[in-house]
């Protein structure tokens, strides 16, 4: 169900009630190394304890919780950019180190129980996709984030590179698309004979990952890119 963002979370919201309303936040907390067992701690307190920017943390949580929430970058400061990049980097590590390898292994096992043609076709589909995902994250890790690091270290246009965040905005490839396709193939088009409890499990993990990536992309495109563009203009 989409949740409408008429009352987004604030610094006074309790962390526990936020998670109870949106279990996907558990994964976000995990990436930020926030340990569970935080009792009735508020967002403001947890941010202070872990050295997080409350503005950035709240924005991330609201994006994950409310489908119609639109982040307002006017509420963020230039030095929040570093916090956003740090979060995106830990998210990348989570996707490339945990989510995708797990999905790959499960799909591989699932396909063993399928007919030869489906197995061949879907193995190839996933292998191609895997390469695309690796390329996507590599580009951000080796070009985009280092550029932003450099820009933050020496603002006022003293950067030597001709790279601009605009190039990221124009070339940002969509890695959720094929995940959506895979979801439909596994749900609707793979034959009934190819059934195992694993098929359900794989599908559920695709739903979770696709939703996660969509929100991750939103942070990159609607928050990070415009903030960096603003900094470039200064």
């Amino acid at each position: 169900m989409p949740r409408s963002s008429i009352n987004p979370h604030t610094a006074n919201t309790k962390l526990a009630s936020m998670v109870l309303g949106c279990p996907a936040l558990l994964s976000v907390l995990n990436r930020l190394n926030i340990k569970l067992g935080f009792g009735d701690t508020t967002v403001a307190d947890i941010c202070q304890r872990y050295g997080l920017s409350p503005g950035v943390f709240l924005m991330i949580c609201n994006i994950y919780t409310f489908d119609t929430y639109r982040p307002n970058i006017e509420h963020l400061q230039p030095n929040d950019i570093g916090h956003i990049v740090a979060y995106l980097r830990t998210s990348h590590r989570y996707y490339t180190g945990v989510s995708f390898p797990r999905l790959h292994a499960n799909i591989h096992t699932l396909l063993k129980s399928c007919d030869e043609v489906s197995r061949q076709v879907l193995d190839k589909f996933y292998d191609d996709y895997d390469q695309e995902v690796t390329k996507h994250f590599d580009y951000e890790e080796s070009v985009v984030f280092p550029y932003i690091d450099q820009l933050l270290a020496q603002p006022q246009g003293t950067t030597h590179t001709s790279y601009r965040i605009e190039q990221f905005e124009q070339n940002h490839s969509n890695i959720e698309e094929k995940l959506n396709d895979l979801k439909n193939i596994l749900l609707k088009y793979l034959t009934e004979s190819c059934s195992s409890p694993l098929r359900t499990e794989v599908l559920m993990s695709i739903f979770t990952l696709e939703d996660d990536l969509t929100r991750h992309t939103l942070i990159e495109e609607r928050v990070l890119a415009p903030l960096v563009a603003k900094l470039e203009r200064q």
């Binding site: 043609v117 061949q120 698309e177 094929k178 959506n180 396709d181 193939i185 609707k188 088009y189």
Partner: peptide
């Protein structure tokens, strides 16, 4: 519900619309 070319290809082969 399939948008990528490789997804379309996979669908077409699995449904025997084209031959591998």
């Amino acid at each position: 519900g399939i948008y990528s070319i490789s997804g379309i290809t996979a669908y077409a082969i699995m449904n025997k619309i084209v031959n591998i």
